[in-house]
Design a protein around this nucleic acid. Sequence first.
DNA 1: GATGAATGAGTGTTCATTCAT
DNA 2: AATGAATGAACACTCATTCAT
Lengths: 206, 206, 206, 206
Amino acid sequence: MPKVTEEHVAARRRQILAAALRCFARQGFHRTTMQDIFREAELSPGAVYSYFASKDELIAAIIAAMMGFVAETAALFSQPLPDGRLRRPGQALAEVIERYQRFELGTVEERARIFPHLVGEQQRDPQLNAAVRAGIERLRGGFEALARAAQERGELDQDLDPEQFGRLAISLLQGLLLQLGVFGAGIDIDAYARAATALIDRELAE
Amino acid sequence: MPKVTEEHVAARRRQILAAALRCFARQGFHRTTMQDIFREAELSPGAVYSYFASKDELIAAIIAAMMGFVAETAALFSQPLPDGRLRRPGQALAEVIERYQRFELGTVEERARIFPHLVGEQQRDPQLNAAVRAGIERLRGGFEALARAAQERGELDQDLDPEQFGRLAISLLQGLLLQLGVFGAGIDIDAYARAATALIDRELAE
Amino acid sequence: MPKVTEEHVAARRRQILAAALRCFARQGFHRTTMQDIFREAELSPGAVYSYFASKDELIAAIIAAMMGFVAETAALFSQPLPDGRLRRPGQALAEVIERYQRFELGTVEERARIFPHLVGEQQRDPQLNAAVRAGIERLRGGFEALARAAQERGELDQDLDPEQFGRLAISLLQGLLLQLGVFGAGIDIDAYARAATALIDRELAE
Amino acid sequence: MPKVTEEHVAARRRQILAAALRCFARQGFHRTTMQDIFREAELSPGAVYSYFASKDELIAAIIAAMMGFVAETAALFSQPLPDGRLRRPGQALAEVIERYQRFELGTVEERARIFPHLVGEQQRDPQLNAAVRAGIERLRGGFEALARAAQERGELDQDLDPEQFGRLAISLLQGLLLQLGVFGAGIDIDAYARAATALIDRELAE
DNA sequence: GATGAATGAGTGTTCATTCAT
DNA sequence: AATGAATGAACACTCATTCAT
């Protein structure tokens, strides 16, 4: 019967995490009280605390899930497409956005709204900051590698500095999240993704 | 003597705002206590409260200053360069970054570190959200106009959607701030600015 | 089968009480959580609660056992020794210490460590306080009676006030328990008992 | 004007400590809530917390005061009386009891009622335990020294083991406190002190 | 105007106890 | 009879704000 209990535990943790995510997306980490989360999860304090030891652990669990997304995504970049080629950088960017929309935790908008709070937190938490740096660097490194490969194939302007190019790609992702947080459904994610891909991958007419 | 008093009041307000900015940049809005600000400003609670009615007002004043920067910057875009032409979009982006570095309030890094907190705040304050939307839209509209003009002059790929193009330009700015918050001095702002300009303004070889 | 069940119940109660005693000795009544007791007894909450209605009842049961020891001990004093005489007070004191060491519940040190907590509890519980007063008075009365008898036999200084003498004897017992709680095995109980007996029963040289 | 503030601070601390002492004497450390103390001190939570950082610090301050009493008292023993002699042990005991009654903090009964709680605490706090051990050992050592001196002067039975004798003297003090906690005003402290002195110092008839 | 001691509502968290299974 | 997940009242503590001096 451990199976039942294990599943039950996992389900409860998901339930609580989802509730916390909604609260955090609405109010931010600090303005969200544990009471808010108890109410949203329809559980008592004791119940929530038997699955997560503290508010910080709840926050950490959500952040970990997001960092996991970044890591998985970055890993994808080094894998060649079916035709044996590496993605063009803009194509990779579009895929990230695509994957982001399909991510399991909460809704697209909730995840976007949590994003600035996450950035704010990592600024004062050296451990978190290290994790975020690592995640971003990995992703940036991925874009850099794709840019170099594209330059070698003559598909990307040789004048672009691949390192900074990676940063710009990251910015296009970060900016999308921030603007989703500001404008909500006012942002057409697909149009944004197409425009970003076009900007980055546009052919040098010759 | 009203002049002196007015100046005195303005100076005190600046002193307090600068102290608050340093605190907020270090700890975020919520983790910063009013005590932190009293200490940083070397003033008593009563003194600070006679210039700002509440912590929220202090936050609002800082955000207002930042939005003021955005508004002024956006206004610049519609003014033609000495040669009568409008800026190319990438050039405009570089100028924004340039102006950002010269902005009077706090240091470059402090302003960057406050940025995610500002975004987080506006997500739960409709009034603030409206102001931020307006500011971003203005800036985005500026980039859009510059893009259209550049397209008309044949300096920008006709296939790029000017509206989304504006969003991308905003993202490049937002991403710079976020990455400054994550990596601090690890970011070479000028290199970033050059790369961004190059990406946006690059000539289509023909 | 009621016999078996009764025995089973009694055994379970003993098991739980012993576990509780160990916890209380380690942490005191208030710092011991019911969880601690469940763990120590290797029983579920429900199981423990079906034998004891509350934490307070558990505490009461332990205190009752200890007061039972006091009552039994006091009863002993009125019984003459084989030679028909009553004990000398110091001898009685040594016997109490002797009996204390053989008491069935927990270890010598555990009982000593619980002692101050017991005293603390009775101070705020009138019912418990009455029971403790009665127990101490009985023991003190026992010493008083022995002292009077010894005085009559010329074995104890006539100048000693028998009532206060009883209190002093009690103190020598209480002090032993407290010092066991402070110094643990650092106290040589037998040496203490001998010294106490010597102090109380010492012959007036004549 | 620092004088006023300093005095004010000291007065407030005394006020709060006295209130805490009354609460702790009534309910023990753990059953006393900070609310109880706020009410007893007629101060708000914030006010109390600006003088003592935590409940533990409040407890520590009270314990420190009591340990200070023990240390001062022990120091007294080594000082000879006006006639150049050292006290007889029973006389020293009476003086300790005398001093105890005059101690500045709270009332005689309050201090007695706190005593078992203090003992209980030190059992689980190694640091506190070390301090208590040291305090008791110092006092016991004092009694031991006085006993040896008395033995040398022929005023105390040579058969008494001075080390254990010291323990017994400590017990007579501890027992007095415990019995005060149990019987309150039912204990005649002076009668107890006289009896204890008589028991310890009684002349060996010759 | 300026001070800083004081307020008290609100926070995260614990734990004795219950009850559906 | 036994389990252990769940409850929720209560706790220690914080901090934006006020106001007597």
